[in-house]
Computed example of a mutant assay.
Amino acid sequence: MKQVVRRGPREVEIGYDEEGQFISVPEDMEFSGPAVTICKVGDRLIVEPVAAKNLAEVLSGMEALPPEDQFPDID
């Protein structure tokens, strides 16, 4: 079981760019994956890592190859 380490609140500055607001996540609080989900609950923003897909999930989302790209039957 993965150990949950809670780190106390930290004040960071809010930055602004052409896409909106942003914050810099402190190094000891960085996420390991490439994406997060974000939702707003009252005045709080909740940021959570996107769960990595397993091979079965990736394969189930793929379309079948068209007939011209399928492997031939082997006798």
Rank of each mutant, 00 (worst) to 15 (best):
T37L: 07
P67T: 07
A52L: 02
P67E: 13
M1Q: 04
V25T: 08
E68R: 13
L45Y: 15
A35W: 03
F31H: 11
M62C: 12
I46F: 08
T37H: 07
D43L: 01
V47A: 02
C39M: 06
C39P: 00
L55Y: 12
P67S: 13
R7G: 05
E48C: 05
K40I: 08
M29D: 01
P66S: 15
P34E: 11
F31C: 10
D75K: 13
D73C: 02
A51Q: 05
K2A: 13
E11S: 11
G33L: 03
V4K: 14
L55T: 12
G61C: 04
D28Y: 10
P72R: 10
P9T: 09
A52S: 08
E19W: 09
G33Y: 03
C39T: 15
V5G: 01
Q70K: 15
V36P: 00
R44N: 14
D73V: 11
Q70Y: 09
A56G: 06
G8M: 04
I74W: 06
E63N: 14
G8N: 11
K40L: 07
K2T: 11
Q21D: 04
I38Q: 06
Y16Q: 08
E19C: 10
V4Q: 13
V25N: 03
E18C: 03
Q70G: 03
R10L: 11
Q3E: 07
P9R: 14
Q21G: 05
Y16M: 06
D75Q: 10
P49N: 09
E68P: 00
F22T: 08
G15C: 05
Y16V: 14
G15Y: 04
L59D: 01
I74F: 11
L65D: 11
V58Q: 03
S32L: 05
V36I: 14
E63G: 12
G61F: 03
S32H: 08
V36W: 03
P26V: 13
N54Q: 12
F22R: 07
F71A: 15
F31D: 03
I23N: 04
G20M: 03
K2W: 05
I46P: 00
M62I: 07
D28W: 06
N54A: 01
N54L: 02
V4I: 15
R44F: 12
Y16W: 08
E27T: 13
F22W: 13
R10K: 15
T37Q: 05
D43N: 12
I74K: 06
I38T: 12
E19A: 15
E57L: 00
P67D: 13
G33Q: 09
C39R: 15
E18Y: 04
G42P: 00
I46A: 01
